[in-house]
């Protein structure tokens, strides 16, 4: 069973989310739903995966919200009715797993994103890839990574993206994971030197011992 939490200022979404995701092979259960991040973090029982509305009514910054949740050990999926490419970029930099558009997302997509996150994979929705592919202030992405974003971000399946770019499906997935890591790297403050090696380790890069 996969447990999820929802943070949305609209009661409607807090109510229906659990019912939407109820069916499927592995049950997805909504265990916590609040209107603000502070309320969520104050709960005694929280789910690791959080579906977070981008624009909460309390006026909080969504980047701060994402960072607070990640700092508390959560994985964040952003769910929003409206987002500029720059918002999606900022959310990715803050470390959000992926971004879902409220108007275009169906239950199946939301459920599959949740399952992938729970399985330790690195999902990216079409809307997410499209926004990143159109982002002017992107971090240094390789040509292949740009091509992955452009092709996958037009709705093309993972398999067809791989075939068109002449790479394997797992390479496409790896590119997607690295793209998100690059964004997160830029957004992640490196407070002291010790952080550096740890961040790299988080990225599955080679463990580096900072020089004394």
């Amino acid at each position: 069973m996969i447990e999820i939490g929802v943070i949305d200022d609209e009661g409607f979404y807090r109510d229906v989310m659990g019912r939407w995701l109820d069916d499927g092979d592995e049950k997805i259960e909504l265990v916590a739903a609040t209107a603000t991040v502070a309320e969520y973090l104050a709960l005694p029982r929280r789910a690791p995966i959080v579906i977070l509305d981008l624009n909460l009514a309390d006026g909080s910054m969504f980047t701060t919200n994402i960072r607070s949740l990640i700092a508390a050990g959560h994985q964040v999926v952003v769910f929003s009715a409206w987002a500029e490419h720059s918002d999606v970029e900022a959310a990715t930099k803050a470390g959000a797993e992926t971004y879902l558009h409220k108007r275009t997302t169906d239950t199946a997509t939301l459920a599959s994103v949740v399952r992938e996150v729970a399985a330790g994979e690195s999902p990216m929705t079409v809307d997410h890839a499209f926004a990143l592919s159109r982002n002017k202030n992107c971090p240094e992405l390789s040509l292949r990574q740009r091509q992955v974003l452009e092709t996958y971000g037009s709705g093309v399946t993972l398999k067809a993206t791989a075939r068109r770019l002449g790479m394997s499906e797992s390479t496409v997935k790896e590119h997607i994971r690295r793209i998100k890591a690059k964004y997160a790297e830029i957004g992640r403050p490196i407070g002291y030197r010790g952080d550096f090696g740890r961040r790299l380790a988080e990225d599955n890069g080679p463990a580096v011992t900072p020089a004394e």
Binding site: H85, H101, T104, D106, V126, D127, F130, R134, G153, G155
Partner: peptide, 8 residues
């Protein structure tokens, strides 16, 4: 259901 991805 058609998802629009329009930019510039």
């Amino acid at each position: 259901r058609v998802h629009p991805l329009f930019d510039e």
